[in-house]
């Protein structure tokens, strides 16, 4: 049987990108411990709506931890107190009756707040657009098994490829760096044979775009790795550095 609790939530409210914003405090009463964190917010929002108050806006979609849309900074940590999960997978049993929970949006200059807790993460899209792909057209492709990939390499590439692009790495990093995100894609492609043709131009292009977006620089604190819901490893950042420096110092490929 589920237990119920009464909570206080301190939420960042901001009307739009121009608004200065500030915290507002709400009561979240009679919250079942088997609710997810977002369901708790749903309950609060239903109450606010019935009172005629603008509900708290936050991004969410799949609610099964894979789309990467949910993004709350809860009590000083992205995706809340547990590791290896997104906010939508966080359940209220991780909190105690009477607790005050502070909820903030991702804070990054490159992720402007759209409203309340929702931020604009299109910077991530633009980084991917800069080179996060293999330039193959549809059709005219060799049989899939003509490109063998050793299992350990395939597994390693997969580990990098599991990134959901939620931005928790940026939110967690004291420097607001996006390197875990960028390096995950660069790594995936650098590891696989399919990615070799554009390997060095890709690293340059993606890093370049990352800098253009104004993300911070990495100081290897490892906070991103700890908070990443998909447990993307810091090794990826080392690999990205290697790719980038190799490209810059020893290769002739330019960005295209």
């Amino acid at each position: 049987m589920s237990k119920h609790m009464n909570l206080t939530i301190k939420v960042w409210r901001q009307k739009n990108v121009q608004d200065k914003g500030g915290f507002k405090t709400y009561k979240a009463d009679n919250i079942a411990d088997d609710m997810s964190f977002l369901e708790m917010l749903d309950v609060v929002n239903e109450g606010l709506t019935k009172k005629g108050e603008d509900p708290i806006h936050f991004d969410h979609d799949c609610r099964e931890g894979i789309c990467g849309m949910c993004s709350l900074y809860i009590n000083g940590r992205p995706h809340g107190p547990k590791t290896a999960i997104t906010t939508c997978q966080l359940h209220m049993r991780s909190f105690n009756d009477g607790e005050t929970i502070t909820i903030e949006p991702w804070r990054s200059g490159a992720f402007p707040v759209i409203k309340d807790l929702a931020v604009d993460r299109t910077a991530f899209d633009r980084i991917q657009q800069a080179g996060g792909y293999v330039s193959v057209n549809t059709g005219g492709i060799p049989d899939a098994n003509e490109i063998p990939v050793p299992k350990p390499i395939a597994d390693e590439a997969f580990n990098s490829a599991t990134c959901i692009g939620c931005g928790a790495c940026v939110a967690a990093c004291k420097n607001g760096s996006a390197m875990l995100f960028v390096s995950a894609k660069i790594s995936q492609m650098a590891l696989l044979p399919q990615g070799q043709q554009e390997r060095y131009q890709r690293a340059q292009a993606m890093v370049n775009q990352m800098d253009t977006e104004g993300f911070g620089s990495c100081t290897n604190t490892g906070a991103c790795e700890v908070e990443c819901p998909k447990e993307i490893s810091l090794t990826n950042i080392a690999r990205m550095n290697r790719e980038y420096f190799t490209a810059k110092f020893f290769k002739e490929e330019e960005m295209h």
Partner: peptide, 8 residues
């Protein structure tokens, strides 16, 4: 197609 794109 997917393998060529680097789907692991």
């Amino acid at each position: 197609q997917c393998v060529a794109q680097g789907v692991p």
